[in-house]
Design a protein around this nucleic acid. Structure first.
Lengths: 326, 326
DNA sequence: CTGTTAGCGCGTTCAA
DNA sequence: TTGAACGCGCTAACAG
């Protein structure tokens, strides 16, 4: 069912049908009525491929995520959806699973003109193939830093936050603070680790142990913590770079028969709902996740509508939420 | 950068470039070489809109989900991704948030020919507008039943599973078994509730209390459980229709100073990783989530390649995993 | 207010 | 083995 058939059915030209569909130009009420009736009768749905090919815009933005099950990630996506919807845009979610082939496949939606721009929460700045695939298309990095200054990004100051957490734990009297980190190809992971190490060095504290979780999941956090529990002496505090990791770590500590926070204090990151669901409730660095998502859309739409706009680095506020786990 | 420019750059016709791109027809090696060089030099990327408009297929399938953060859902999606990828298809994820406008917007990707088919995990069979929007396009319901026999679906026998759980709890001596359910517009929710009530009636057990959570989240499960804890006498067992709800319920029970399972036994549903992360570990009905996703893709591709194929109802096996929460 | 027509970029005949 | 020409369905410019 095409616009041609509708025109034929309504006894008008395709241009008139198009005008009715888009509320553009002027159409005699009687003709508009006939067109609308023909559309209703035939259950006609416009072909978006043709429309987008013709207008060269899709009102769709691609969101590339490495793990959609992560609650922090889900929150950011909600912020993205809200702001996009407010501006007449639709979201396409693509789960890259941190896989090169998947990422490449997803980005073809961008280079293939299916979407108008992309927001990535992935660590792909290190993959030159992907950045050339994106080319000069509108792109915003979200909850992750851009390596080059060419691309806008929205996030928090991860180094500051990590430094604050470690300083505070030291102030509480903790002396063996371990870090549970994640894939260092993420720049935020490198920055948080750097913050962690900087503070320890400044205080002449030589107990410095980092474990890397294989994914941002509770299970991976638990495994990482189990490795830490084989240390002698044991850590007396753990800083995990996500709430999911922290939740898994807490489980491992509990199973080992140790008490939180008496034996080991735990601090998470993100400030997701999960931090309030675990027992004891988790001290965590709260990120303004919804706002991060919204700002990413604002930046992206700005770039879409004004291609010459300079790249922006938006840094939002974070805060340490102190709860029973410390 | 279009195929025209490449043709010009390589000194051949657009047809030849197209043949190189699609490995179709025959091209003189020398010309192929020149085309490939032109493509590489100009960083050309084919316009998928034009290609899909012309070929009338996209090799993409739409997946509509109501809450991407639900771990069960995430597992099913992984299964979908695996099977789709094995067949050369790409996934587009659309978070409907159980919202009509969002769902409508998402399904336009289908009626607008952007994708070749749709897998829904949503309860949209009740919304006639949406089903007409889908029209006769390839469609599979996943982890949810179809109301009409026209559309294929993949899932488990929810009524059987619920009946089994309740019978088993009764066998353990529990007499006041409450149900934490979810939005009854989901057919699986209606079936599980039916299973719950059927068994209670059969045993002449009149203590029958159902609470409805506002979403499939821990927070909503906690709120629902808090309402149940205002009952007199208290329930001595709770069956929640998802692990996320059960986790929230456990938190509420713990905060009320009650013991699991001594005071109140808890059973979840789905068999997600979460059920192993909570303390005590959760007894739950394990669904073959990955396989559900894979089967959904198998059914959908069958429908895409063979439009006259009859709708199938695929029922997979479940099993009750008994752990410390009961 | 309306209709005709020229592309958007591509794959695919059909002749050569 | 190649190229010219058509049409997928749509919007927009232009002429009436």
């Amino acid at each position: 069912m095409s616009i041609q058939k509708i025109a034929q059915l309504a006894g008008v030209s395709v241009a008139t049908v198009s005008r009715v569909l888009n509320n553009s130009g002027t159409v005699k009420p009687q003709n508009r009525e006939r067109v609308l009736r023909a559309i209703a009768e035939s259950n006609y749905q416009p072909n978006l491929l043709a429309r987008q090919l013709r207008t060269a815009r899709s009102l769709m933005i691609l969101v590339m995520v490495s793990n959609i099950a992560n609650p922090f990630c889900a929150e950011v996506v909600k912020g993205i959806e809200e702001e996009a919807e407010n501006n007449g845009y639709r979201i396409l979610l693509c789960n890259s699973a941190a896989d090169l082939a998947r990422s490449r496949s997803g980005l073809k939606l961008l280079s293939g003109k299916i979407v108008d721009g992309v927001i990535t929460m992935d660590a792909l700045a290190r993959l030159p193939e992907l950045t050339t695939l994106i080319g000069g298309a509108p792109w915003v990095q979200c909850a992750e830093y851009a390596d080059s200054g060419e691309v806008s990004c929205v996030g928090i100051n991860d180094m500051d936050a990590a430094q604050h957490v470690i300083s505070w734990l030291l102030g509480l009297g903790r002396r063996r603070i371990a870090l549970i980190n994640h894939d260092l190809s993420y720049r935020y992971a490198r920055l948080r680790e750097q913050g962690y190490k900087t503070v320890l060095q400044t205080h002449g504290n030589h107990w410095c142990v980092v474990e890397y979780a294989s994914a941002l999941t509770s299970a991976a956090g638990r495994v990482a913590m189990e490795r830490l529990l084989r240390q002698h002496p044991l850590p007396d505090a753990v800083f995990a770079v996500s709430d999911t990791l922290a939740a898994g770590a807490m489980r491992a500590i509990e199973l080992a028969g140790l008490a939180i926070p008496q034996d080991i204090a735990v601090v998470g990151f993100d400030g997701t709902e999960l931090s309030e669901m675990v027992s004891p409730q988790l001290t965590t660095v709260e990120q303004p996740s919804r706002e991060i998502g919204r700002q990413a859309v604002v930046q992206l739409l700005n770039k879409i509508h004004n291609p010459d706009a300079r790249a922006q680095r938006i840094m939002l506020d974070w805060r340490l939420v102190k709860r029973a786990s410390t």
